[in-house]
Write a protein that binds this DNA or RNA. Structure first.
Length: 801
RNA sequence: GCGGGUGUGGCGGAAUGGCAGACGCAUCAGACUCAAAAUCUGACGGGGGUGACUUCGUGAGGGUUCGAGUCCCUCCACCCGCACCA
């Protein structure tokens, strides 16, 4: 073969052949060992594919191709997470229906992904905007509703004062609207909520049963934020009411010298007649409400507050009457919205007490509470605390909690930072929430047999002036009758957030055309759980947590066979621009994958993105690096002109062949793609040095490289006249014994410094090695030998005085 | 402030506690060429030496060890999250 390597023709050729032969379809052959590899399906944006997409996709494509050659039935699917705001905004701006925008974008993305030669099973493609798909998204919502896990609640939302529309958090940048730059304020609206907090404990505890990379587990745990403590009741002096607080330090109760309530605490209104400075308190509350998130962050270090005069609380443990303050450092959304302040042992309380001259009483000895709050729970001993004196913190916690329970003044309690999931969007391009609002029956689910509740075709999908969903315009869609009592009723006009469709998509791949269930029992039992899921760290506390929640719910409902959806979760680093900054249009450092494919070929792009650096770390793009990978493939192409006969590895190559098979096999599994490719480059260099490669060696080399560069290897396989298709070949085996060199160079050190080398068998015994080593450095052995170290195959170290 | 991550040649990066810098890029030299490109071959951390060699060197400083990029302690810088969660 004398023609030069031309990826343009061979890549198209093999993509067509693979499609025609259905090379990568995952048959429902439930007798074979299965492997379910999953990558996050993309949001088909108008920008087209980003060079960031191929990094994770190629990585799991490599693993999938390898596993197929190892005999697994591999499911590696792809689909489209196509509902969402950018499409809707683009549609509004350009006056094109979002459905059309989505179709166009999906077409472009699919063409781009296909040009990269991924071994996706395209027969299982899913699209979240397809009614046949969102039928089941709505079905799951109804299950949640019927189980009491979907409810409506007044929630503050982000409201753009200029666009007059509710915004997602992601659309608010530094307190202003991302699109128009106008200030964003909080506005209370009735929203659908999902009770993810009901699964808070399971979402933490079951992390022990899955194989996720540590940063993901840590982030999820911190995000859920479970903490153990106690709720304690403080009597409001002169009333029948109690002010309840949550604390993780009930042991410090004797040191509680005042209390603080959040500005939104209901007692401010309830006791306004008893509050002497109500006007002042109200002014503080209004000021706090006006603060934007940005200001709250900025002012976090400087505590503000107002004493509520006329109300006092009684410390239950010593009967002291203590003042109550209001301050925005106490959040209504966590615990009870009120705290007991122990300035001696809490930094925030200490700061507040110092500023307002409140008493600081030390109850845990070990620090200097005049200087700083003492928060060390490991070493302190209780003082000034009556019956707790002398105990350490852990014992004191236990003792006081028991005491509180006995007296009916409190009880142990655990709390979470996790909040319920705001599930409503006042937008058009999302799944309609299948609920009917009946004046008599309340919220009534749309009957299951009426699903999917189709998103109506509308002329005008612009947001309304009053913040209602555009669907509210559609009176003939909105007005309906109650399925329960038959009276006039209205449909819910909110739609679901983008996270809905992506919370269960991995289930639909199993059986994407099933109209009777989200997937058949057989398919679920065979394929679940996902064996390996790779995705971005940015989804750790949103998509990944949401989908685990839905899956756990579906498990409790008997819909899915396993409590966790993903057995293993890994994550890739970002690809940055050549200047080391995040790629963006404004920075002018965006690389378009299409350009790389047309100039260098898909195999080069795949190889480069895998060679760029450690998979889990961010990496900067380098056009020279791309060229280097193309040069590597050119040299691979050149191997065919060195091809000689031979059905077994030649003697001088045998060790290296077995070593490379071993290294590439394990590196692919541990995501060390860069070193796997380096090993293949090194092997290639050896063939060049030698000037020949035999057929056995060529077969192995092509097979090892195939997962990374599938087109060129398949072409060379065919050109060399090897049997069948390379994608159907068997992954090569290595013989551990044959990975070991006959002799190796072993460094000889004297007192830890290298002074010579010996050639010796790697498994030589210690006496032989030490003797040879001493001989090699005999001129330097002038002192008394105190130690002789021998690491087979590595080094000899003679330690002398 | 808290949590997670990262610091190694000119650059991207390799190194189960055991020869630091594999592999690639850039650069330089040689071969080929009228020439250039491409390709092939070789050199390529700093200092010293004609040289075989020698010495220093993995963000900084300590420590453990025969031996530390790797383990421990104290710091520093940068990146990414979270942000008063009682």
């Amino acid at each position: 073969m004398s023609e030069a390597y031309n990826p343009k023709t061979i890549e198209k050729k093999w993509q067509d052949i693979w499609a025609e032969e259905k090379a990568f379809s995952a048959p429902n052959d439930y007798t074979r060992p299965k492997f379910y590899a999953l990558v996050e399906f993309p949001y088909p944006s108008g920008q087209g594919l980003h060079v960031g997409h191929p990094r994770p996709y190629t990585a799991l494509d490599i693993v999938s191709r390898k596993r197929r050659m190892q005999g697994y039935n591999v499911l590696f699917p792809m689909g489209w997470d196509a509902f969402g705001l950018p499409t809707e905004n683009y549609a509004i701006k350009n006056k094109i229906h979002p459905r059309i925008v989505t179709e166009n974008n999906v077409h472009r993305f699919k063409t781009q992904l296909q040009s990269l030669g991924y071994s996706f099973d395209w027969d299982r493609e899913v699209n979240t905007t397809d009614p046949g798909y969102y039928k089941w998204t709505q079905w799951i919502f109804l299950k949640l509703f019927k189980a009491g896990l979907a409810y409506k609640s007044e929630m503050p939302i982000n409201w753009c004062t200029s666009c007059k529309v509710g915004l997602a958090n992601e659309e608010v940048v530094n307190g202003v609207c991302e699109r128009c730059g106008s200030p964003v304020v909080r506005r209370v609206k009735s929203q659908w909520m999902l009770k993810i907090t009901a699964y808070a404990d399971k979402l933490i505890d079951d992390l022990d049963t899955v194989d996720y990379i540590t940063p993901v587990k840590v982030s999820q745990k911190n995000w859920i934020g479970r903490s153990y403590g106690a709720e304690v009741d403080f009597q409001l002096a002169g009333t029948e009411d109690k002010l309840t607080v949550f604390t993780t330090r009930p042991d410090t109760l004797f040191g509680a010298t005042y209390m603080v309530v959040s500005p939104e605490h209901p007692y401010i209104d309830k006791y306004k007649d008893s509050i002497n400075n109500y006007e002042e308190v109200l002014a503080y509350r209004d000021a706090a409400a006006r603060k934007s998130d940005f200001e709250r962050t900025e002012l976090a270090k400087d505590k503000t507050g107002v004493e509520i005069k006329g109300l006092k609380a009684i410390n239950p443990v010593n009967g002291n009457e203590i003042p109550i303050w209001v301050s925005d450092y106490v959040l209504m959304s966590y615990g009870t919205g009120a705290i007991m302040a122990v300035p001696a042992h809490d930094e925030r309380d200490w700061e507040f007490a110092k500023k307002f001259g409140l008493p600081i009483v030390e109850v845990v000895a070990g620090g200097n509470v005049d200087e700083a709050a003492f928060t060390d729970v490991a070493t302190g001993k209780l003082v000034n605390s009556g019956f707790l004196n002398g105990l350490d913190v852990a014992d004191a916690k236990k003792a006081i909690t028991e005491w509180l329970a006995e007296k009916g003044l409190g009880h142990s309690k655990k709390n979470f930072k996790l909040r319920d999931w705001v599930f409503s969007r006042q937008r058009y391009w999302g799944e309609p929430i299948p609920i009917i609002k009946c004046p008599k029956c309340g919220f009534v689910p749309v009957p299951e047999e009426e699903l999917p509740l189709m998103l109506p075709e509308v002329e005008n999908y612009m947001p309304t002036d009053n913040g209602e969903s555009p669907l509210a315009h559609m009176r003939d869609w909105v007005e309906t009758t109650c399925p329960c009592c038959g009276s006039k009723a209205e449909r819910e006009t909110d739609t679901m957030p983008q996270w809905a469709g992506s919370s269960w998509y991995f289930l639909r791949y199993l059986d994407p055309h099933n109209n009777d269930a989200l997937a058949s029992k057989e398919a679920l039992n065979y394929w679940m759980p996902v064996d390996w899921y790779n995705g971005g760290m940015e989804h750790t506390t949103l998509h990944l947590l949401y989908s685990r929640f839905w899956h756990k719910f579906l498990y409790d409902q008997g819909v899915v066979p396993c409590p966790e959806p993903y057995q293993k979760r890994t994550s890739h680093g970002m690809i940055l621009g050549e200047n080391g900054e995040k790629m963006s249009k404004s920075r002018g450092n965006v690389i378009n994958p299409d350009d790389i494919v047309s100039e260098f070929g898909a195999d080069t792009l795949r190889t480069y993105e895998m060679f760029i650096g450690a998979f889990n770390l961010a990496a900067s793009w380098s056009q020279d690096g791309v060229k280097g990978c193309r040069r590597f493939l050119d040299r691979v192409w050149g191997l065919s002109s060195m091809l000689v006969n031979g059905d077994a590895y030649t003697a001088d190559m045998e060790t290296k062949m077995h070593q490379t098979i071993k290294k590439v096999s394990s590196d692919f599994e541990s995501m060390k793609y860069n070193t796997a490719i380096a090993a293949l480059m090194s092997l290639l260099n050896d063939f060049y040095k030698k000037g020949s490669i035999n057929k056995a060696e060529f077969k192995t080399f092509l097979t090892l490289l195939n997962p990374v560069a599938p087109h060129i290897t398949e072409e060379l396989w065919q050109e060399a006249g090897f049997e069948g298709r390379l994608y159907q070949a068997t992954w090569p085996e290595y013989d551990e014994a044959k990975t070991i060199e006959k002799t190796v160079e072993v460094a000889v050190q004297v007192n830890g410094k290298i002074r010579g080398y010996i050639q010796i068998a790697p498994d030589a015994d210690k006496d032989t090695a030490i003797a040879a080593g001493k001989e090699a450095v005999k001129d330097r052995l002038t002192g008394t030998i105190v130690k002789e170290v021998y690491v087979p195959g590595r080094l000899v170290n003679i330690v002398q005085k």
